[in-house]
Amino acid sequence: MSFNLTEIFEIPIGIGDITLEHLVYFLVILAIGITVAKVVSTNVRRALMDRLPKSERELLTKVVYYVIVIWAFVFALPQLNVDLSGLLVAGGIAGLVIGFASQSVVSNLISGLFLMFERPIKIGDNINVSGVSGSVEDIRVLSTVVKMYDGIYVRIPNEKIFTSNITNYVHNAARRFEYSIAIRYEDDANEAIRIAKKVIATHPFALKSPAPSVFVDNLGDDGVNLTAYIWAPARNWWDVRTDLLWKIKQELEANGIEMPFPQRTLTFAEGLEVRTRPAGKDEKRE
């Protein structure tokens, strides 16, 4: 008995002109699509493991999976003699409508994905974006949640974050801050610098390197203005800043160096004459 595989493939399955060959091709394309979808979605899940919360990670993985499966299904349909021209027209119009409607959603989604891979900000970072300053509470697929320093919850769309200037105060290991310290003209500026440096050196988080710098910055109206540049760990700089200034002030005062008060030197063209009133006049008024 002879066995011809080609003839078997050409056997109609009883639905229109569809043969077994068409059906096999349809199923093979679909199987390849499902396999690719599984591989891609598994890798997407793995790639997003540390970047997204589980719920959003699973949602995104499913979206990727079903987009690929639907694409494979549409690609395989012509094997079953299904005319996609009508579907394409309807799909095109529907796509246009959905596209316009979900423009901002998709934009936020894409921006969110870029933020997750570029990582200009991380959860816990202190940032400033579009005038919003605070610490990052959560980075979601569509938006980022920032808790402002006064405790207010702010949700910023990812598109806005992605297209704005992001200032991340803690991205680097260390950052510098500065003080302006004014002393009187009669005080010794070198001594004041020595004392300020000594106080800064005693603070654990005022970094040894880069070394702090204290110098006479300018000669002001009321006194000599010193500037101090101090480096501190980026996540602790505020504590250092709030802690050190008062200690410097106290130490300077303990060494006889004081802050100047606003003062004016008045010069009289014809000199200043001080006259005393006769005592009787005031007594009469009373």
């Binding site: 680097n172 290991a173 260390a174 654990p204 390197s209």
Partner: peptide, 19 residues
């Protein structure tokens, strides 16, 4: 004793270290 910290490497990608 007392503690002091420093930065090893540049501020952009160095590390803070106990000195």
């Amino acid at each position: 004793g007392s503690q002091k910290y420093t930065l090893y490497g540049p501020p952009t990608n160095g590390v803070v270290a106990r000195y």
